[in-house]
Nucleic acid binder design. Structure first.
Lengths: 195, 195
DNA sequence: TCTATTCTAGAATAAGAATTCAAAAAAGAG
DNA sequence: CTCTTTTTTGAATTCTTATTCTAGAATAGA
């Protein structure tokens, strides 16, 4: 019937996401997005409506694929507190020295309460908070979490720490120092039985 | 000899700073900056060279006056750990429900390693880190800090938490929850003598 | 008071960005 | 094979933004 789209949606979204993470919503021009996605401006408008529409789709992709995948990979339910720690440590290990940062953090700061982005920012933060809270609650049950720690309060603290680390990485702070910080924080969370 | 400037430099910088905090460097247009400063574009260019020059001056002003003043007010050397806690708590109490955020956090995220902003971002973070480290070291000496805590490591952690809180405030997270988090964190830092 | 100089205002300019448009191309349905 | 529908493309357009220019106003010292 009609001519089918010739591009691969997932690779287009990946490219757009990359550009938005690196440059922010405002600075990523349609020109940049053409390069990043391999599509021409016309096709972008035809497929996504406008720049905001592409951002929307790219953010959705980020939350589901990148963030979701990261959680699956580093912090599945079976990995306990150590998994959470690995998730945090991975923030300091972005490939080839680049620090694109997190679309959630970057958008929260750049766009504030902007309605469209707000939805995704909240969804992403919720996803993180829930994983933190679940892992901490489980750790409390199996005794690996210090008994005097409130899982929900600690989950919120981890969320703040997570966002803060991303800011510091983006600002070029010394990564080894940040890793020591993460190690120390998780050491504090763990139950340690004195002999 | 020559006509002197008719504006008040400090109030101009305050206005510009406000606009940059609210909207970010990119989104704050010269038009917006005219309104925010009360100057006309011509005067802005005459006095500060260009938009980047005004941003530079406004950032300098932020670090010296706003951040410096905040530290003086909430966390002078005499106030100890409680002063630091108050400084953190004040982040959740911006006047009239607005959350302009911190120019340091916002610029770190928006501008990344951009050379001009980088200088100020680093200066601001350094200023915070040094205050945290000094207060923690002093608290260690007077015994109000838990003895097993490394002041430098804890200072870095506080810096991350500080930046993270600002991201969460900007994203509209529940402020009371964030305040509880701060209270809990400082409770953890303090030495508590069991009777 | 006059003059040199700098400030201010607001229009003009120029560059860059987002978005739209019109024509060419592709692919399946009949 | 042709027709229809939608995508693709690249140019055209419209908007916005940063920056410059020009004329007029203000000031302090000669």
């Amino acid at each position: 019937m009609s001519r089918p789209r010739s591009y691969n949606e997932s690779s287009v979204l990946k490219g757009a996401m990359h550009a938005f993470r690196r440059d922010g919503y405002q600075r990523a021009s349609i020109r940049d997005l053409e390069d990043a996605t391999g599509l021409k401006a016309g096709s972008i408008y035809n497929s996504f409506g406008d720049k905001a529409g592409l951002f929307d789709a790219a953010f959705e992709h980020y939350n589901q694929v990148v963030l979701g995948g990261r959680i699956e990979r580093f912090a599945p339910a079976t990995a306990g507190l150590a998994g959470l720690r690995d998730l945090f440590t991975s923030l300091m290990h972005e490939p080839n020295g680049e620090s694109h940062g997190c679309l959630i953090t970057n958008s929260a700061v750049e766009l504030g309460r902007n309605e469209d982005a707000y939805r995704h920012v909240h969804a992403g933060m919720d996803m993180l908070f829930k994983v933190f809270a679940e892992r901490l609650a489980a750790a409390r049950h199996d005794g690996s979490l210090r008994a005097d720690i409130d899982p929900l309060l600690a989950a919120m603290k981890l969320l703040a720490l997570y966002q803060g680390l991303l800011v510091l990485v983006r600002a070029g702070q010394d990564k080894p120092a940040l890793e020591r910080l993460v190690a120390a924080e998780f050491h504090e969370l763990e139950a340690h039985y004195d002999i």
